[in-house]
């Protein structure tokens, strides 16, 4: 799925969080949005996923704007998946959580069980299928949340600081899963992170978001090795104090 964001403005009360965002994200790429906390990264993702309604500006999905009628709007929404920093798991076991999106889409047995099991297995969670969500560790919970998001094969996967506060083992598993998902399905991935190393490891292109504006967009090697904007340089070298 391609994404075109133009002139996007979003405020909370008097505080303008997004001050005119323009972005074009190509189908199949892994696009990182980097920036310090409070830059508006999460707000941008929530606008893309319809959780927030921007004041002005537009977002086009595969060249089209959001349909007005509920049925096509839901259909579009169902092509987009998201994994948040601290995911919420529903009451029930891991398998139930993973199968949730399939249930929403009326996927029948035996396909439902097969896809759920496959998704859990891909994240190394087969043993934990019947474990209650409330007793999973943070890393396991995040893997369940990731499996829950990708089991329905979204064309656009939004990742919001999805490995923050996790140990390296879990970070490795999850990053591997992102690469694999992108490679096998050709889905577009937008990765929001304040971790420059993760952006470097995963993304094809990176954008730096500062105080509600895009400072610079670039392909991964150039963005890190030869940034044009002094603020980007400060950010990638770790000089930027925030």
């Amino acid at each position: 799925m391609s994404l075109e964001v133009s002139g996007l403005v979003k405020s909370f009360g008097a505080r303008e969080v997004l001050r005119g965002i323009d972005l074009r994200i190509e189908p199949g790429e892994i696009f990182a949005i980097a920036g310090p906390s409070g830059a508006g990264k999460t707000t941008l993702l929530r606008c893309v996923d319809f959780l927030l309604r921007p004041e002005t500006g537009s977002i086009r999905y595969d060249g089209a704007t959001t349909p007005a009628e509920p049925a096509p709007a839901i259909a579009l929404r169902r092509r987009i998946g998201m994994v948040a920093q601290n995911p919420l798991l529903f009451r029930g076991n891991a398998a139930y959580n993973v199968s949730f999106g399939l249930c929403i889409r009326d996927v029948d047995e035996p396909e439902l069980s097969r896809r759920t099991a496959d998704a859990l297995k891909a994240l190394g969670m087969s043993d934990l299928a019947a474990t209650r969500a409330s007793v999973l560790s943070a890393g396991e919970a995040q893997r369940v949340a990731f499996a829950r998001a990708v089991v329905v094969r979204p064309d656009l996967l939004l990742l919001d600081e999805f490995t923050a506060n996790l140990d390296p083992t879990n970070v490795n598993i999850l990053e591997g899963a992102v690469r694999e998902y992108n490679r096998s399905t050709g889905a577009t991935v937008i990765l929001v992170t304040h971790n420059m190393f993760q952006a470097k490891r995963l993304a094809n292109r990176v954008a730096l978001l500062l105080e509600g504006r895009i400072v610079e967009v670039g392909a991964v090697p150039e963005f890190f090795e030869n940034p044009k904007d002094p603020r980007t340089r400060a950010f990638v070298t770790g000089e930027y104090a925030y």
């Binding site: 839901i74 929404r77 998946g81 919420l88 529903f90 999106g101 929403i104 889409r105 829950r148 329905v152």
Partner: peptide
């Protein structure tokens, strides 16, 4: 019930 429950179900495509 937490707001996040609604958000999560919404994001997963619930009507």
């Amino acid at each position: 019930v937490e707001r996040r429950v609604k958000d999560t179900a919404f994001v997963l495509g619930a009507d």
